[in-house]
């Protein structure tokens, strides 16, 4: 069953404080979080979070398209990196 709309999106409260602090500092920061269940809110856009996947903190650079999704969706817990082949990575 989907979450009731009247409750609003779920987010662990301390993330908002950390996000505000990171934005104010203006430094090149990664906010390490364990809260994979938290929803990505518009105020997180532009920040980088290190989302724990049980083994390591994978960097998640938040953009507009990710708003409404959960942090955990971008930090898989079961991974097979595979072969590089002709895959490319873009530096943003």
């Amino acid at each position: 069953m989907a979450r009731s709309v009247w409750k609003g999106p779920f987010v662990d409260g301390y993330l908002l404080n950390k996000a505000d602090a990171a934005r104010a500092s203006g430094r090149n920061e990664i906010i390490r979080i364990w809260s994979r269940r938290s929803t990505i809110l518009p105020q997180f856009v532009g920040l980088t979070f290190g989302v724990y996947n049980g083994r390591k903190f994978l960097p998640v650079q938040v953009n507009e398209n990710m708003v409404g999704h959960k942090f955990g969706e971008f930090s898989p817990t079961r991974t097979f990196t595979g072969h590089a082949g002709d895959k490319r990575a873009r530096r943003t």
């Binding site: 609003g8 779920f10 662990d12 301390y14 364990w34 809260s35």
Partner: peptide
């Protein structure tokens, strides 16, 4: 690296903030 602590209660706190 900035560590976001888990000192606050997550559930109700999260709903209230949201």
């Amino acid at each position: 690296d900035v560590t976001a602590g888990t000192s606050q209660v997550a559930g109700s706190e999260g709903r209230a903030v949201a």
